[in-house]
Design a protein around this nucleic acid. Structure first.
Lengths: 150, 150
DNA sequence: GTATCTGCAAAACATTTGCAATTCT
DNA sequence: AGAATTGCAAATGTTTTGCAGATAC
């Protein structure tokens, strides 16, 4: 059972090739170190809106020398380069999300899960508003998810 | 000049009657103490999306015995009772906003100012989505404001 | 006089910073 | 060797907690 779980985890992370990840970083002028590749790989393959600690706890098993500072550094760098979004939907800690397509986020206040909501909203297309230049748009929803409703 | 500023500040806060504030609190089962009335009065009259510290620094002048813990307690209570919204648009600290009508928030990443954006968005009207019960919708925009653009 | 509310000090977290050790070319 | 990257330990800043004293009804 424990072994089966491990195999599944490996499969998920193996879906993304190191070459693809390396290109993603190099394109934006970020040198693809083991640590940076791992963090980006985690974000792309897991799609679970992780916190710094969640990423650290997971990758620490694969790379025992990894430090939390490096996870912080890497995520700040990826956000800076526009590869990753910092979500501020949950108070007290920042969550991270690989930028694929614009979508809203829903936080279930009962189970704490965060869901991607694929709504086609005008907000995501607005780039200027009364002289304001909009660079980033986040839609954060909170409530009770369908699993917790019953 | 300093005196003129003080007069202006007093005028602003005097716009909201203590009776109105007291009713707002009592209606939701919150006992209207001096501290709670002051925090709510500040939020309603200033409309400046303050942090805990901004509120504390201001009210501390009027009520020297006020503690920051009480400001925290009060704001958590007001959010709990649905009187106030906790904004998570700025990383590192939570900002507060009196709930009047649904609107988006814009954070200028240059000057740090937060603006209310009165957009009429469908998002604010959606209460259910694929079995999800939506209780709160926040739209957070980031970019450069018209003042900083030049 | 009992409930609640307030406020101090300490604790608990998340995040950043300074700097030395390591790695890469 | 030189430049960038990593990682530890300490510092910072925000928010929470425990508890004792004050206040209200």
């Amino acid at each position: 059972m424990a072994q089966e779980k491990k195999v599944t985890e490996e499969k998920i992370t193996e879906n993304v090739s190191t070459e693809y990840l390396g290109n993603l970083l190099s394109e934006r002028g970020v040198k693809p170190s083991i640590q940076r590749l791992s963090v980006l790989k985690y974000l792309i393959s897991k799609k679970n809106h992780p916190s710094v600690d969640v990423i650290y706890q997971y990758l620490h098993k694969e790379i025992p020398t990894l430090s939390k500072t490096t996870v912080y550094n890497t995520l700040n760098l990826l956000v800076d380069k526009g590869i990753v979004t910092a979500l501020s939907i949950k108070e007290g800690e920042v969550l991270y999300d690989f930028i694929e397509y614009p979508h809203a986020h829903f936080l279930c206040t009962k189970c704490g899960n965060i869901y991607d909501i694929k709504i086609d909203n005008q907000i995501f297309n607005i780039k200027t508003f009364e002289g304001f230049h909009i660079e980033e748009s986040q839609i954060n929803l909170r409530g009770i998810c369908s699993n917790c409703k019953n």
